[in-house]
Each structure stands twice: as structure tokens, then as C-alpha cells.
Design a protein around this nucleic acid. Sequence first.
DNA 1: TTTATATGTAAAGTATACCTTACGTAAAGT
DNA 2: ACTTTACGTAAGGTATACTTTACATATAAA
Lengths: 78, 78
Amino acid sequence: MIVNKLRELRERKKTQSATPEEWSQEGLAKKLGVTRQTIISMEKGTYNPSLELAFKIARVFETSIEDVFEYRDDEHET
Amino acid sequence: MIVNKLRELRERKKTQSATPEEWSQEGLAKKLGVTRQTIISMEKGTYNPSLELAFKIARVFETSIEDVFEYRDDEHET
DNA sequence: TTTATATGTAAAGTATACCTTACGTAAAGT
DNA sequence: ACTTTACGTAAGGTATACTTTACATATAAA
């Protein structure tokens, strides 16, 4: 299973940025070229991004994929 | 677009391993819990893995996602 | 009270990751 | 010659990432 720090990273950017609207869900969606629904679902953990989107996210937050997303083995794997 | 070093990494493991069969396409597929078709398609570049599979791959090759996969912007993006 | 901004939910559709099965080829060993 | 191992291709199916549209709620500002 994959957990992410998306909301945390976004909120941090929002408070630190001179233009917080850039870091609303909608602003982030625009930066990434996806819809707001996609951001919501990822923040909720409803689904995981594709590898390509994960790369874009890491780039936007100026960090690595491994810093945004964490992979944990579940004991119940198929 | 995403490019990967899968084939290269797999071949290296194959020659360096005491048990090269482990690192055939089929052997790798078993390690990752996917089918051989999935390995073939990724090595060919036909499709990109999910983030979860990318994590598993990095783990199996004892390295990072960024070391296995590279993200390049194309000029022609939607 | 009205308007704008940010967040959330739901449902139906499209694109693609991944699976299953089946067949083809080439090399190496018996 | 035949068997095994590794690699490849093709086609149809399932799961899920992502889209589109529409509606709802809370807050802050006019």
C-alpha cells in the first residue's frame, strides 16, 4: 500500500507562498495538468497516481518521489 | 515521457547472479508478482508501471525509483 | 444578503495498466 | 530429432487512474 504526504506538502506551500491560490487544490491541479477530482482522490487516498503523475508531483514540490510517497508492504498480499 | 533502465538492470543482475534464472523475464515477474507480459511491455516501453509496481521494482533492484525510471518532458504535451 | 473562493461528493465515461491464453522462434543440451 | 529455456507477439478481458459534469457546504468579503 502507498501513503502520501500530498495534503501536508500542499498546505505548507500554501502558507509559505506569496500567492496561496497557486496551492489550492485547483491551483495544484492546473500545475499538474489534471483535474481537481484527481487531487481530491489522491489526498483522500482513494487511488494512487500513475508513475508519470508521481514524477510531476515530486517536481512541483521540488523533491523526490520517495519523499512524497511511501510504500508499505501489507501482510495480506495476493 | 518516461524511460527506464529495466532491461539493463535485469541483464546486469543476470550475469552477476549465481542463479541467473532468477533474473530471466519470468523470474523477475515472479519476484514482482506480475506476469511475464508485464515485464516485456515495460522493457519495450509499451506502457509505464503503476507507482506501486515502480516501488516494487526499485526494491528488487535495491535502488530508487529515480534510478530506474527517468521522466522527460516532451514538448508535445496536451 | 449576495458573491466568490475553497473544499467535498456522486455518477458515468475514457484510457491504460495488467492479466490470461495461446502460438511462434531461436539457442543449447540430450 | 526432441526437449527445455528464454524471449517475443497478438487478442480479448478486468481493474483502476483520470475526466467530465453537476450539485452541496462553509467561510470570508462586498
